[in-house]
Amino acid sequence: MFVLRHRPPLGWNAPSRSHSRPKTSNDTPYSEAHFKTTKYMSDYPERFDSLAHAREWFEAFIAYYNHEHRHSGIGWHTPASVHFGTAEEVRDQRAVTLAEAYDPPPRTLRPPPPTTPDTPAGMDQRPGQAQGTRTTNLIASQPSHWT
């Protein structure tokens, strides 16, 4: 192959080759996933009219994302619910609602009652954060040059 013929001149100090983006060490999958979530919003504008318009839209988006949008990875809770420790209470309320709504048919074989998804353990603490301390910002702190 053409590539193999030209590899030996690079020597032992050659930079490592990368053939696909996911293997790149400086790739940021979390921020790129967040950009995708942002751009898939139905009200995402094609262009922002100004910096103030962009800030206004992102403030509304972050409020929606943290307090209204339910995530499958955290048991269909909002990030704010998990962050502030109310996820277990919400889960218990859901279980009561499911139990009240569950009226099995009068048969011999009944399906098991529905259950709520479990909340992942440790989701209320960030890595390196002291036990019992909480911060108010859920996604990211606002850079000082934005103000």
Rank of each mutant, 00 (worst) to 15 (best):
L10S: 11
T24M: 12
T78I: 00
H69R: 14
K23P: 01
A33L: 10
G128M: 01
P9S: 06
R94Q: 04
T119L: 08
R107N: 06
R70Q: 12
V96C: 09
P29Q: 07
G11C: 01
I139E: 04
H53K: 09
G122S: 04
Q142D: 14
L10A: 11
T136V: 12
T108E: 07
I139G: 03
R7W: 12
T108V: 09
N137Q: 11
S81I: 04
A140I: 09
G122Y: 02
W12Q: 15
E59R: 15
H77L: 05
E88Y: 02
A80S: 10
P117H: 00
E88C: 01
I139W: 02
T97C: 09
H53C: 07
P120Q: 06
A121E: 11
L51G: 10
K36R: 11
E100W: 07
S141M: 14
S42A: 13
P113R: 03
H34M: 13
R110I: 03
M123Q: 07
R110S: 05
D27E: 12
S18A: 13
T108P: 04
L4N: 13
Q125K: 10
L138S: 00
H71S: 02
Y44W: 11
L109W: 06
F35W: 15
Y44N: 04
A60M: 08
P9A: 04
Y30V: 11
P114I: 00
P9I: 06
H19P: 03
A121K: 11
R47M: 11
N137H: 13
F2P: 14
I62G: 05
L10R: 14
T38A: 14
R91A: 03
L51Y: 10
L98C: 07
A52S: 10
D27M: 12
R5I: 11
D92Q: 15
T37Y: 10
H34E: 07
E46N: 15
S20W: 08
T115N: 06
P112V: 06
H69G: 06
Y64G: 07
M41R: 09
Y64E: 15
P15L: 07
R134Y: 03
T24F: 15
A60H: 07
P112T: 03
T133A: 05
W146S: 03
F35Q: 14
P106G: 03
Y30S: 13
P106W: 04
R134E: 05
S72I: 05
R21K: 11
E89L: 05
A52Y: 06
N66A: 09
Y65I: 02
G75R: 05
S25V: 12
S141D: 15
W146G: 00
L51S: 08
L10G: 09
F2H: 12
G73P: 00
A33K: 09
A87F: 04
N137Y: 14
T133E: 07
H6L: 13
T119H: 02
R17T: 12
D118N: 11
P120K: 05
A101K: 08
